[in-house]
Design a protein around this nucleic acid. Structure first.
Lengths: 122, 122, 122, 122
DNA sequence: GTGGTCTAGACCACG
DNA sequence: GTGGTCTAGACCACA
C-alpha cells in the first residue's frame, strides 16, 4: 500500500506520514475509517513500530488522523485538518508558482496543469 | 535581508539557501550580479562562514548560482537552473493542488490564486 | 586500505573519494555493501571526520554511493552512477589518447594496453 | 585561440596551460615555434599577466615548452616532454579504462573509440 | 579579499 | 551508533 524508499535519505517516518496522508486525500482510506494498527503496519512494511508511531503522531498534529485510546487511529474529515496545514500549503503553492514562472513556465502552462487535476464536482 | 529562525528545526544552511533563491527569483539579485561574500553574509547573519558556504554549494548544485574561487558567487540565468529542480517543483505542485482540493479549495479559488501572481507578459 | 599523501596538494577529501571509488570499481567493496563509517575511516586514516564526510557527499553526487542517515553509506550499482561521470571519462579518454599519440605512442601500443585490462566476458 | 571559461571553477592558469598544450599537441603551434608572449596573451585573453606566467612555468616543467630568457617561450619537441608526464598519462588511461569497464562499456566500444582517433601513419 | 580546505569538538535526529 | 549540522578558528591558492 505504501511504497518506502529506504535509500532516499528522507526519514522513514516522513515517508510513512506522506503515504498515509496520500491515502486519506485520495480516498483510499475514507474519513472515519480505521488506519492500520501500528504493529500491523510495522509488520507489513518491515520497519520498527516506533517509526510508525512517530508518523501517526505527526499525522494527528496535522489533523489528518485522530486516535481513540484502546481503539486505534482513524482518518479525519477534511474540515478537521489543521488550519495551519492549509495555510502552509497555500504559502508553498505561491512560492512554487513564483519559481516556476522565473524558470520560464508560462501562465498558460500553469493553468493547463491546474486544470488537469480538476475534479468534476468543483 | 534574509530572515533566519534558529529554532525552526530546518537547517540554517537551507534557510539561507531558500532566502537567496527567493532573492534571485524575485529579481532582488539580478542574473549575473554578485551574491554577498561568504564572510560578509556570515557576519551580517551572525552565523558561521562554513554554514553560509554550504548554502552556496547547494545553490550552485541547483544551478541558481555559480562560484568563481577568489572572486565570489554570482546569480545564474534561469536557463542554467537544473532541470531536476524544475521537475521537482512540478511534482510538488501537483501534490499540493491535490491536497488543497481535498481540503475543500475549489477550482475557482485555485485559478484565482494562480492568476494573482500572473506576470503581464505571459 | 586507502593511501593518503598529505603533502600532494590534492585535497584529502578527493584522495579519499578516489580511493573509495577505486575500491568500488575493483569490487573491493561489492555493490550494496556498507562503506566504513565516517568515524571509523576518520580514525584509521587519522584525519577529521568532516573531511571523510565531504568525500562521501561527493561520492554520492557521482552516484557511486548512497547514504542512509543513521545507517551508513553503501556502494551503489554501476547503473546508478551519474551519466555525467561517464561522459567526463570518455572526454578525458579522448584527450589522453590524443596526447599519448603526440608523445609517440603507436596505435599498436595503445591497443595492446587497452587489451591488457580486458575482462573475459566482454 | 584559447577558450576560457571564467565561471568553470577550474583555475584560469590551468585552463591556459591546457589550451596551450592542446595547441602544441594538435600541431596548432609546431615544435620550435614561439608561443605568444606573456603580455600579448594576457592582453588578448583579458586576464592578469601573472596568471599567464604561471601557466608557462607549469608547461615548462612538463617539458611542453622551454624559455630562452630575452627571447620568449617556444614549443618543445615531443621527445623533450617529461617522462613523468607520459607515465602519468598512462596511469590515468588505465584508471579510466577500468572505470569505464565497470560502468558497462564493452571492450568493443573501447576499441572503436581508440580507433576513431587513429592517425594514418601509425 | 575571495572562496576552498581542514581541524577539533559539540549537539541532534534517526532507527 | 550512525550520519547531519554547526561553531570557532586556521591556513592556502587564486587573481
Amino acid at each position: 500500500m505504501i511504497q518506502l524508499n529506504l535509500r532516499s535519505g528522507q526519514p522513514i517516518y516522513e515517508q510513512v506520514r506522506d503515504g498515509l496522508r496520500k491515502l486519506i486525500i485520495t480516498g483510499g482510506i475514507p474519513a472515519g475509517d480505521r488506519l492500520p494498527s501500528v504493529r500491523t503496519l510495522a509488520g507489513s512494511l518491515a520497519i520498527n513500530p516506533n517509526t510508525i508511531q512517530k508518523a501517526y503522531e505527526v499525522l494527528e498534529q496535522e489533523g489528518y488522523a485522530y486516535t481513540i485510546p484502546g481503539k486505534g487511529s482513524f482518518a479525519a474529515l477534511p474540515t478537521d485538518v489543521n488550519a495551519e496545514r492549509r495555510e502552509e500549503l497555500l504559502r508553498k503553492l505561491d512560492g512554487i508558482l513564483q519559481e516556476l514562472r522565473f524558470l520560464g513556465v508560462t501562465q498558460a502552462e500553469l493553468e493547463a496543469r491546474i486544470r488537469k487535476g480538476e475534479r468534476p464536482n468543483d
